[in-house]
């Protein structure tokens, strides 16, 4: 349920508050290898939403009992910086952050080839620097880039975007205002080359037909995002090869 003065989220000409068309994501920026200490890192922004991800490992687990004999353990923390939101967010992990850490980990498990690194731990730390809607999907996109940047073997990259329903219309990549006053927020992440959905949640209410359409919009957008991720990695590593 949403309250307060509800802004007109879709204008007369069919565009959104910030001028985007329904199927148009915000400007997306990606960069890899942005941190010195981490084995892999990435900074990804979707409009004003900006997320930093870092990978450490595969490395020896901090607690010796946290091992699997046949593969690596993934350890994921999704965390929001205190200054990332309108009102300061307490740095203590919230129930929301605990849940999102789980769904992001489960989104990456199918692509990381953990069987190549038995008895180790791969740490993935996601820090939301600025939250303006779509932080988990931006986070999972950054996380998969950081894993690739760390040279960890993967079956595919993971790309994420949130589909929303605002003023009765399905739109791609909702921002905070659209999330707050819209009717539905459906974060989706896919390994597009494998054709697998690895993260899917729905906060809101959709008809069956709307859901099928929303999934199709997500797939189309994610194929483009996946291509951007691949390009970002190629750019960095073709420079490394030339030097």
């Amino acid at each position: 349920m949403k309250y307060g003065e509800k802004p007109q989220l879709i204008k007369e000409d069919g565009t959104r508050l910030d001028g985007r068309r329904p199927e148009e994501p915000r400007p997306i920026h990606m960069e890899v290898g942005v941190l010195e200490n981490a084995d892999g890192s990435a900074l990804v922004s979707f409009g004003k939403t900006r997320v930093l991800a870092a990978v450490y490992g595969p490395r020896e687990p901090i607690q010796k009992y946290m091992v699997l004999p046949d593969r690596a353990i993934l350890r994921v923390r999704y965390h929001m910086a205190p200054f990332s939101t309108g009102e300061r967010k307490s740095p203590a992990p919230s129930r929301r952050e605990i849940e999102l850490s789980k769904v992001i980990r489960e989104a990456l498990e199918p692509v990381v080839m953990t069987e190549l690194y038995p008895r180790t731990m791969i740490d993935l730390f996601i820090e939301v620097l600025q939250a303006d809607g779509g932080t988990r999907t931006t986070g999972v996109t950054a996380a998969s880039l950081a894993l690739a940047d760390a040279g960890i073997a993967m079956r595919d990259l993971v790309s994420g975007v949130a589909i929303g329903k605002v003023n009765g219309k399905l739109v791609v990549d909702i921002d905070e205002v659209e999330d707050m006053y819209g009717e539905a927020d459906m974060p989706v992440a896919m390994a597009t080359r494998l054709g697998k959905v690895v993260l899917l949640q729905l906060n809101g209410v959709l008809s069956k037909e709307e859901f099928v359409k929303a999934m199709d919009m997500a797939r189309k957008t994610l194929e483009a995002i996946s291509e951007m991720q691949r390009k970002t990695l190629l750019e960095k590593y073709s420079k490394v090869l030339q030097s």
């Binding site: 494998l194 054709g195 209410v205």
Partner: peptide
């Protein structure tokens, strides 16, 4: 109507 979705577990699913 669909009033919530949660995908769980370690694998993926096709659309």
């Amino acid at each position: 109507r669909i009033a919530g979705i949660q995908k769980m577990g370690q694998g993926g699913m096709t659309i």
